[in-house]
Design a protein around this nucleic acid. Structure first.
Length: 281
DNA sequence: AACCCGGACAACCGCAATTAA
DNA sequence: TTTAATTGCGGTTGTCCGGGT
């Protein structure tokens, strides 16, 4: 990464916007930040490919977008992740897996990159030290599971063997979930930056007519109900585990029906999970 | 003081999804 | 309907910096 692409063969393999000779790479200078921020304040974001030229920057569009999204946006909150934010990240990750943009969309002022970094450097390691698999949020050693949970783990195998793939087990669902709350639809792009992060568990601010808000509202409110359960936080780890399985079950069922996951796909994933569980046990 | 090591984070890459022509 | 361009996402890595030796 971040290596110069002087080699033509290498350059041919990489995306065009990053291979133009003379484009700057690496850390941004305050001057560049100012140029970019001022330009976007005046002209707005979007059209990233041509933005650098218009703004007088020697950067590729991707780099500009990333810098704006992760650092320069006024709504970006800097500083330590608060304990309640941390708790929210943990819960959302258990439900959504590595869907960083989805998670970030529900934590005001935090970016997907920031959450991803925080997860990889702090939370993931902490879970491992507690004997919990950070991918599945289950005990690393299956023997730590009480017998009744071991038995139910196969019957509830529609819950993820790994949250990252099983809570929303199908690419179709990823699409549905993304368009509902994480990714920005074309129609929603215009006001995305102004209105996003207006509240926890609110979608990113698309106009109600912009997207299929039926799905959005259902997904959002359902997720909301899951992660806001006060009872959840006060439960002991075993109860949390049990509850988590039940919740994930419910999430998967609702997600599948609400977001149009084909039944055959769903069955496939169930089988898939059982196969994985079989390997685990 | 110099060096090494590891943690934290910013930035890049490749790919997939979406949009426009 | 097809194709090209653009955008967004997640995984990965380079760089910086502080602490330890």
């Amino acid at each position: 990464m971040r290596r110069p692409t002087a080699d033509p063969a290498e350059a041919a393999r990489t995306t065009p916007c990053c291979t133009k000779v003379g484009l700057k790479r690496g850390p941004w200078t305050p001057e560049e930040d100012e140029l970019l921020a001022n330009y976007i304040k005046k002209e707005g974001g979007g059209r990233w490919r041509t933005l650098p030229k218009r703004a007088g920057l020697l950067r590729c569009g991707k780099s500009c977008r990333l810098r704006w999204m992760n650092y320069l946006r006024p709504s970006v909150k800097r500083g330590q992740i608060a304990p309640d934010e941390e708790d929210l990240i943990l819960r959302l990750h258990r439900l959504l897996g590595n869907r960083w943009s989805l998670i970030a969309g529900r934590i005001p002022g935090r970016t997907d990159n920031e959450i991803k970094n925080y997860w990889n450097t702090h939370l993931s390691k902490r879970l491992v030290s507690q004997g919990i698999d950070p991918r599945t949020h289950r005990p690393l050693n299956p023997n730590q599971l009480p017998s009744h949970l071991k038995a139910s783990s196969s019957s509830s195998s529609k819950v993820n063997p790994g949250a990252s793939t099983a809570t929303i087990p199908n690419p179709n669902v990823k699409l549905a979930a993304s368009s509902s709350s994480g990714q920005i639809t074309a129609a929603g792009k215009e006001n995305h930056y102004q209105t996003e992060n207006q509240g926890v568990l609110r979608s990113n601010g698309e106009d109600d007519e912009d997207i299929n808000n039926c799905n959005d509202d259902v997904f959002s409110s359902f997720l909301n109900s899951l992660i806001n359960e006060d009872a959840f936080a006060s439960q002991n780890p075993l109860q949390q585990l049990t509850n988590g399985i039940a919740q994930a079950d419910a999430l998967v069922s609702i997600t599948a029906s609400t977001f149009g996951l084909a039944q055959q796909d769903w069955n496939f994933n169930q089988n898939d999970h059982e196969r994985v569980n079989g390997h685990l046990n």
